[in-house]
Amino acid sequence: MTPPAAHTWAKRGHMPVVRVRGRSQRRFSIAALTCYKTGERSRLIFRPKRHADHKQGGRRSLTWTDYRDLPTAAHHQLNAPLVLVWDNLNVHLDHRLREFIAARDWITCFQLPSYAPDLNPVEGIWSVLRRTGQCNTTFTDPDHLIRVLRRRLRELQYRSDVIDGCLAATGLTLTTSRPQAQ
């Protein structure tokens, strides 16, 4: 991720340009779940992963097993059934992940419509993370980046009001009805 600039300037009438050196190597990926339950504090569960260099045969993204392990960890941590609301990331549509979800009676999964990031509360988390954890920061090395990201995500875990705000920004509510079995 290229760090966003929070403040910049340019001469009047000229477009401000922020030059960033280097290219994205996609060395890190983060998967996250926002968890909501009426009457309890909201939670954020995340799993960062550092990838091997993709030029040497490593991956540039998370695998279906990484996405499989996240709801499993959430289920163990929350000790409750899960209702997953996923966007249309290609890994979320993987047949192996679909089979895994279908085999678990404690997971109910709903798919968001295509091109609807405004309905995904986790997108709000990424926005907050970019504005608070990466803004106007030059990272010295990949380890510095991952330390800052982990620290900011841990701070967000204790800010249930921010996590609630990400849900409120979507316009979704917790009072959805359960699908009826036929």
Rank of each mutant, 00 (worst) to 15 (best):
F139T: 00
G58A: 10
V91D: 02
Q77H: 14
N79H: 14
T72V: 15
I101F: 03
H76E: 14
P121C: 05
T72R: 03
H75I: 07
R98A: 15
A74L: 09
D87R: 01
T138D: 08
H144T: 03
N90G: 13
S114A: 15
F100H: 06
H75E: 07
I146E: 01
D94E: 07
D87Y: 03
R151Q: 15
L145I: 07
A73C: 11
I146N: 00
H92W: 11
T132Q: 02
F110Y: 14
E123D: 06
P142W: 00
L70K: 00
I107F: 04
R60N: 11
D141R: 01
W126K: 01
N79T: 12
D105C: 10
I107M: 04
R131E: 12
V128M: 07
Y67K: 06
T132W: 03
G133I: 08
W86F: 13
H75W: 05
F100D: 09
V148N: 03
C135V: 14
G58Q: 07
R150A: 10
R68E: 09
T108R: 08
D105H: 07
L149D: 02
S127N: 06
F100C: 09
P142A: 00
Q111W: 10
L119F: 13
D94V: 05
A73S: 11
R60L: 08
I125C: 04
A103G: 13
H144P: 04
H75G: 05
R147I: 10
I101V: 15
A73H: 09
W126Y: 02
L70H: 00
Y115I: 04
A116Q: 06
T132M: 06
L78Y: 03
L93F: 10
N88R: 12
R98W: 11
F139P: 00
P81H: 04
S114T: 06
L145P: 07
L145N: 04
A102R: 15
I125E: 00
A116E: 02
R131N: 14
I146C: 00
R150N: 10
F139N: 01
R59P: 11
F100M: 09
D105G: 11
H92M: 08
L112T: 03
H144Y: 02
W106Y: 13
A103W: 07
A116K: 04
N136L: 02
Q111N: 13
P81K: 05
W106C: 12
A116L: 05
L112G: 07
L70S: 02
D118L: 03
D87K: 00
D118H: 06
N79A: 15
T72G: 12
W126R: 01
E123Y: 04
A116R: 04
P117K: 04
L82E: 01
L82H: 03
W106R: 11
L82G: 08
R59Y: 07
I125R: 01
